[in-house]
Nucleic acid binder design. Structure first.
Length: 231
DNA sequence: TCATTAAGTATGC
DNA sequence: GCATACTTAATGA
């Protein structure tokens, strides 16, 4: 395997305080892998033997309900740690990670986690910070699901994806990874039909533009209003 | 207000 | 040309 470049990590929060020498050590223990769109990185309930860092691409983090339906819990963007079950003292992964687009990730053996935490300043605090932020986000979506009408939930989901992965184009903010109506229904606890109808209506109103697996938010402000967020 | 059923069109490998 | 993505209408909880 080729040596990995130092610049991969030096700008990322969990590693930003480290010396080049320390980053070298970390990279020398890392395994780099490419994942096709749709590929599973690890599965819910399986042994959490490694933890990961997404270098490029996007992931869906998915849980399966007792009833067998999939729920998309959150998305992972480049630069984020994921699969950090070792940090939670867990022996198994709490969710499944699937590449939403072609992706590249680094990974390390779970056994190295305590060493990372103790030897690298800032690593622990930064990891636990993202962990906390994620928990907060999940909780927020959960209460949103329980209290808000479908239209608002879908508007929120689109805004979250646009905020997290949005690229500005001439037409508006483009969601950077492939998303189907089915996917959005799995994020919002509704059906693909309802999502399809709403997106069609919003397209007619000029709020979004969508083709298959591809969505551009053309009027973010209107979408914010539709989402019912209080200012 | 929304899910379900059902029946269609569009799109990309 | 087939599977997958998407659309639309109708019906009923």
């Amino acid at each position: 395997m080729p040596k990995l470049d130092q610049s991969l990590l030096s700008g990322l929060p969990p590693f930003s305080l480290l010396q080049p020498q320390q980053i070298r050590e970390i990279l020398d223990h890392a395994v780099s892998r490419r994942y096709e769109e749709g590929a599973t990185i690890f599965r819910e309930g399986h042994d959490a033997d490694r933890f990961y860092l997404l270098l490029d691409g996007y992931l869906r983090v998915v849980r399966t309900t007792p009833g067998g339906d999939q729920i998309i819990v959150l998305h992972i963007s480049p630069g984020q740690l994921f699969g950090i079950a070792p940090a939670l003292q867990r022996a198994t992964y709490p969710a499944t990670s699937i590449a939403a687009a072609e992706s590249i990730a680094l990974s390390w053996p779970a056994g190295l986690w305590p060493e990372f935490v103790s030897s690298y300043p800032g690593f622990a605090t930064e990891s636990y910070k993202t962990l906390g932020q994620r928990l907060g986000q999940i909780q927020e979506t959960l209460t949103e699901m329980a209290t808000q009408a479908v239209e608002k939930r879908i508007a929120c989901a689109l805004l979250r994806m646009a905020n997290q992965s949005g690229r500005k184009t001439a037409e508006g903010i483009e969601i950077a990874f492939p998303v189907t109506r089915q996917n959005i229904s799995e994020m919002t606890g509704t059906t693909l039909h309802t999502v399809s109808r709403l997106l069609s209506a919003w397209q007619k109103d000029g709020v979004v533009q969508s083709t298959r697996k591809h969505i551009v938010v053309t009027d973010p402000h209107r979408l914010v209003i539709l989402s019912g967020i209080q200012s």
